[in-house]
Simulated scan of single mutants.
Amino acid sequence: MTRFPLYEVMELNARFKGASPEAVLTYAAETFGERLTFACSLGLEDVVVFDLLSKLPEPPRIFFLDTGRLHQETYDTLAALRERYGLPVETYFPRHEAVEDFVNGYGPNAFYESLELRKSCCAIRKLEPLARALTGADAWITGLRSDQAATRAGLERFELDNAHGGILKINPLADWSLEQTWAHVRAHQVPYNKLHDQGFPSIGCAPCTRAIAPGEDIRAGRWWWESPEHKECGLHVKIAQETR
Rank of each mutant, 00 (worst) to 15 (best):
M1R: 12
M1N: 11
V9Q: 15
F16P: 05
K17P: 03
K17T: 04
L25V: 12
T26G: 11
A29K: 12
A29C: 15
E30N: 14
E30T: 11
T37W: 04
F38P: 14
C40W: 00
S41A: 12
L44G: 01
E45G: 03
V47F: 03
V48A: 04
V48T: 08
P59C: 05
R61D: 07
I62N: 08
F63H: 08
F64C: 05
L65R: 02
T67F: 00
L70S: 10
Q72T: 13
Q72R: 14
P94L: 01
P94R: 04
P94E: 06
R95N: 10
R95M: 01
H96W: 02
E97T: 14
D101M: 08
F102E: 14
V103I: 15
G107V: 06
N109G: 02
K119P: 00
A123P: 00
E128N: 07
A131P: 01
L134N: 08
G136C: 09
G136T: 10
A137K: 14
L144F: 00
D147I: 01
E156Y: 08
I167S: 07
K169G: 06
K169L: 05
L173D: 13
A183S: 14
H184M: 03
R186F: 11
A187G: 07
H188V: 01
H188G: 04
H188D: 01
V190C: 01
P191G: 03
L195Y: 09
Q198E: 15
G199C: 03
S202D: 09
S202E: 08
G204E: 12
A206T: 03
A206M: 09
T209M: 05
A213Y: 09
G215Y: 08
G221H: 06
P228D: 11
L235V: 07
V237K: 11
Q241L: 08
T243C: 08
